[in-house]
Design a protein around this nucleic acid. Structure first.
Lengths: 263, 263
DNA sequence: AACCACTGGTGATTATAATGAACCAAATAT
DNA sequence: ATATTTGGTTCATTATAATCACCAGTGGTT
């Protein structure tokens, strides 16, 4: 079922901020692919510039090609740069960690993080992939996605990341309906213990959700006042990002947001 | 001979600043791969997040996954950010377009550009891939590369990009020896007509060349004074970037640079 | 309206490329 | 000094991907 190209590309997912360089055997072990196969794939990806191996050491790491591709994308469709500005403002204003993510494959790719400067704060790993069904950002995106995407996510088993994760498809659908009406999504320790996330979707030129910006706070610190403040700020910044990146805020969201501000 | 993974990845190279979105048929035509094959590969790469297709339109473009990968790499081995600073300084000081590139596969990936604000200036496309044998940056890198890389480049036919491009392997080898002794590379319209490039290599922790920073000026504007000024500035900035990115300037280069400054 | 030249997308057959166990030399670990 | 693990390679077997013809939709011309 799995194509070789998919297998090769999945190798890239094993590189993270925590483990930026990996050896051949190690990668073969983690991916469950034969060593010979991994070796050949790594070679090809080195040729393509997606990977490179450090001169003397025989470790592989992400190559300069990924920087180039990112530049090409940003030159044509700038979002990363735009978003970074909003994140900085949000983090400064609210004193909590702000982050942004975009749909990438079947998950959300974190493309920007701005940590608060408080002692106690939520710390996120750059380049992490968020799941759609349990994170605030994921829920915000799903609530404003085409039914096909929702169906695709609900078709697969909903992994329980914490004891509070919603694993029942029916319950999740109801949850998405609520979110659609309110304009923002909350995840009170459904993705990670002690983390309370609030997210608002970003839209493309077709008015479809493409990602989200979010605030993550230590769960115990969340109060009603802070919650209100966060949501108001997120809605404003999300609209700014959406509009300045050429997106269109759909009427359904605008109505929901207006309803919130009224209250 | 060509693996399917390589073919799939080569599709990514067709996306550029000039043409950021491509349709299925168009991509099949340009790559010379069958439409059905391309379709399957694009699907796989969309799943991986490297590509995405714009909602209603049926065009493909680079996906958010590349932004994520770039972030992961930058988090672990920051160069792009570092280099950008140097480029800005160079462009401001010299009033000419500065750019940086890193080895990526069998070429140089442009990872940073800072154009001068003059009316007449050299304009570069973001994310372009430079050839090693005819650009100033490429020559600078080759001159300080392991013999294997040089041999690999010289093994393939040296494409003539202009009438002045060096196409003879022997001549090129001699040229590289000169560059190794001087510490900088020049490309007087050997890559593009009317463009005069000067480049200095960047090094990794093993003292091997990993890329270059360069200045590109309109050929007619180059004078001996400007040339001296550019080289001095480049050598200083290249060392700064190399050192602050954890690299080590090899003794051979340091000697060459010192020899130049003496003169 | 009928036609044309496109587009994105799809399946079944055939040819091709991927696979994985065994194997090596060199580097580490014991 | 011995055993284990590393990156890397080989080659017969097998599973995979390429191919061609085809379908349906679209936009433009006559």
């Amino acid at each position: 079922m799995s194509t070789t190209v998919a297998k090769a590309l999945s190798l890239l997912d094993h590189f993270s901020e925590a483990e930026p360089e990996i050896g051949l055997s190690e990668l073969a072990r983690r991916s469950g692919v034969d060593k010979a196969t991994v070796h050949r794939m790594l070679g090809v990806m080195c040729d393509a510039g997606l990977l490179e191996k450090r001169g003397d050491a025989r470790l592989y790491r992400l190559g300069a090609g990924v920087l180039r591709l990112a530049r090409v994308r940003e030159a044509a469709f700038p979002v990363s740069a735009l978003v970074q500005q909003s994140l900085a403002e949000l983090a400064a204003r609210l004193g909590e960690t702000a982050h942004a993510s975009l749909i990438s494959g079947r998950g959300l790719a974190t493309i920007g993080i701005c940590e608060s400067n408080r002692g106690s704060r939520v710390s996120l790993v750059a380049g992490e992939i968020l799941m759609l069904h349990c994170t605030a950002s994921g829920l915000a995106v799903l609530a404003y996605s085409r039914p096909e995407r929702v169906d695709r996510v609900l078709a697969e088993p909903l992994v329980a990341r914490t004891t509070r994760t919603i694993t029942n498809p029916g319950v999740l659908r109801a949850r998405l309906e609520e979110i659609r009406l309110s304009g923002f999504a909350e995840a009170d320790q459904t993705a990670e213990d002690d983390v309370y996330g609030i997210a608002v979707p970003l839209f493309d030129s077709d008015g479809e959700a493409t990602g989200a910006i979010a605030i993550a706070t230590p769960a115990h610190r969340m109060t009603n006042d802070l919650r209100q403040e966060i949501i108001t700020a997120l809605i404003a910044e999300a609209e700014r990002v959406t509009v300045s990146s050429g997106g269109r805020v759909p009427a359904t969201f605008r109505a929901a947001a207006a309803r919130f501000v009224q209250v």
